[in-house]
Design a protein around this nucleic acid. Structure first.
Lengths: 211, 211
DNA sequence: CACAAAATCCCCAATATTGGTGAGTCATGG
DNA sequence: CCATGACTCACCAATATTGGGGATTTTGTG
């Protein structure tokens, strides 16, 4: 049995979801509350496997409650639920360690599936939320347009060493080439990157994900 | 009807999944292929709504095929499937614009659900993949624990300049302090960060989000 | 007020880096 | 077979950085 704690300020929604979860097989609803202020205390008391937390809550926001719960008991799975697909909220929730994020859904079986997913160590994201996350992800990590900067394998290797903070001498050693050759490579790298110092090169390398 | 194209090198799996998808309501399986080399050509020909692409493929890898497809027809939804939960692969696939990522699953209805999800503009991630993505996400964006390194405002300012690739002289100018003072601040920064060169300091600054 | 922390400035010497020039090998493709 | 690009190595001179001293002023706090 998966023990679940529900936080949801909307009375109607809370009661109908409670009803559904209480009768769902494999799930034990330990409690349902309209306020997250006492969330940490309640988590300590009931030791739920999964917490279902609404983002919009009076007094203490769902995100803050999430942070508090994770700080107090980081193994407790917390799944966020919301009606709004707000980029900032999604971002904040994930950074705070949410184990799932679902849009309020008329189909209650979605909740059950999600609870099972997170209980089993996975994460559950509603499709539209998943899209948001993937987009943010790509936006951050996808190679920038500046991929036309072509570094040779050796140059990339040297640049990688520079990113690690190694000096010419150390790089020479690590790559098993002479100090002078390192010098040559670095000169070429600076030329290609249009920089003229190691720090600048490192910054561009990281920014452009050249290494 | 959602038009689907399947790429999967395992004959058995391809055929059984084909069979299932062909009979699934709302889905029209346009074709199933064992090799992704011709993927772009096939996509152009069949104009599928959703492509199901195995990561492990002979000749052209699923990731490369994904890139090719997205380059040729960026609105075609591509869902990756794999048996391995390889961080690098997940990362690469998402950066290349995958619309979903599912682990090969004995339950074929998972595929149908996932196809519907991505067709409707959402994304579908298997729970364990979702966990990976969220973890990578947090790792990148969540403030690092190493915030206990206390830099004074001036030191942060100087470090920021260093990240911008400025030399001592330029920093002195920018902060309107003398070259010697910049030197002093940087000595202090190196001490606090346990480094002894500008590139190292820059890397740590970026890693730890100190600036 | 006295104290500590932050910020400012200066000098010197040892290293490290940068920029310029030149040149040899090796593999690849036209 | 020649051209080209990648990789290798060397030398020199000019700058820049680093690490070690020491010192003063400002600011906020007990």
């Amino acid at each position: 049995m998966i023990s679940v704690l529900l936080f949801e300020d909307n009375k109607n929604f809370r009661e109908s979801l409670s009803l559904y979860l209480a009768s769902a097989e494999g799930i034990w609803l330990s409690g349902a509350f309209a306020d997250a202020t006492e969330a940490v205390k309640l988590v300590r008391k009931y030791k739920p496997d999964v917490v279902l937390m609404d983002i919009q809550m009076p007094h203490l926001s769902g995100i803050d409650a999430l942070r508090a719960i994770k700080a107090a008991s980081k193994d407790t799975k917390v799944m966020m639920q919301t009606v709004f697909e707000d980029d900032d909220k999604v971002f904040a929730a994930i950074c705070a360690g949410a184990n799932g994020y679902i849009l309020k859904n008329p189909r209650p079986d979605t909740y059950v599936q999600a609870i099972f997913d997170v209980y089993n160590g996975g994460s559950h994201l509603s499709p539209s939320i998943a899209t948001k996350v993937l987009t943010m992800f790509q936006h951050q990590f996808a190679k920038s347009e500046q991929t036309y900067i072509q570094l040779t394998p050796r140059e990339k290797e040297v640049l990688q060493c520079m990113v690690k903070g190694m000096s010419y001498k150390m790089i020479a050693d690590a790559c098993d080439i002479s100090f002078n050759t390192v010098h040559t490579h670095i000169k070429k790298i600076y030329e290609k990157l249009h920089v003229n110092s190691a720090p600048e090169a490192v910054v561009k390398a990281l920014e452009w994900k050249l290494v």
